[in-house]
Simulated assay, not measured.
Amino acid sequence: MNASVNILNDSISRQTIVAIARRVAAFRKRQGLSLDQLAARAGVSKGSLAGLEKATGNPSISLLCQTAAALGVSVSDLLATSTPRKAEAFELGGGKVLWRGQAGGTARLLYGTRGPLMFELWEWVILPTERYEAKAHSPGTREILYAMKGNLGAVVDGEVFEIGPGQGLSMETDVPHAYYCAGKQPARFRMIVVEMPTNGGLRKNGPAGAKKSR
């Protein structure tokens, strides 16, 4: 049986959740939005948003993405991990863990840009019994996956793909999608996420470097 959970609830992640809560509330109030208005714009329930601002639950990556997009900022803005510099060095071994599977898999946000043009670099490890289900992101969002170890499976709008080490997969993720380990060994991969403004005009390209799973 595949299983997944949301953000960690250890001491470090608790600090992260509290920081996110404060920044979401600050961005919302700065824009003069009520909880109802932001919830409607983000396509989430008022209860979920209220819980996010009160730091009472473990928010999912999808909730963070939807809330950030509705506020016109990036997830990194909510995490306060990015800076306005023209260039910035960062450690690939750093970042914040924003998901942990029940078997110990992780999703770590290594780096992200500020503002509505969101560019993020993630590193994921998914164990054989784990699966991560994601809701549709905002229109035009694209993810590029690069498998480093193990076999990775992805489901995009109901279509299944599998890639192995050294292979990549380009996906339009403004539709429901999922990731899972497609082998007996953990799947480790890096992911680039690019979320353009609604009128950004991304071209429609099919997945590359992948084979359909039979």
Rank of each mutant, 00 (worst) to 15 (best):
M1K: 12
N2M: 07
V5T: 11
N6R: 12
N6Y: 06
I7A: 10
L8G: 10
L8F: 00
N9V: 06
S11D: 13
I12T: 14
I12S: 14
Q15G: 15
T16D: 03
T16N: 00
V18Y: 06
V18H: 12
A26W: 03
F27M: 08
R28W: 09
R30N: 02
Q31N: 07
G32P: 05
L33W: 05
S34H: 05
Q37C: 02
L38E: 10
R41D: 00
G43Q: 08
S45M: 01
K46N: 07
L49S: 12
L49I: 11
L52M: 15
A55Y: 04
G57R: 12
L63F: 01
L63Q: 05
L64G: 07
Q66R: 15
T67Q: 07
A69K: 10
L71Y: 06
V75I: 15
D77I: 07
L79K: 02
A80H: 07
S82M: 08
T83W: 00
T83M: 04
K86W: 05
A89I: 10
F90M: 10
E91I: 01
W99V: 13
W99I: 11
R100V: 06
G101N: 01
A103E: 14
G105P: 11
A107L: 09
L109C: 01
L109S: 01
G115V: 07
L117T: 08
M118C: 03
E120G: 02
W122I: 06
W122Y: 15
E123Q: 14
L127A: 05
Y132L: 09
A134C: 10
K135E: 15
A136F: 03
A136L: 07
S138L: 08
P139T: 09
T141D: 04
E143W: 04
M148I: 15
M148T: 02
G158Y: 06
V160D: 14
F161G: 05
G164F: 04
G164D: 07
P165Y: 12
G166A: 09
Q167M: 11
G168P: 02
T173V: 15
T173D: 01
P176G: 06
P176M: 05
Y179G: 08
K184E: 15
R188T: 11
R188Y: 04
M191P: 00
M191C: 14
V193H: 03
P197G: 09
N199A: 09
N199W: 05
K204G: 02
K204N: 13
P207S: 13
G209S: 04
K212F: 00
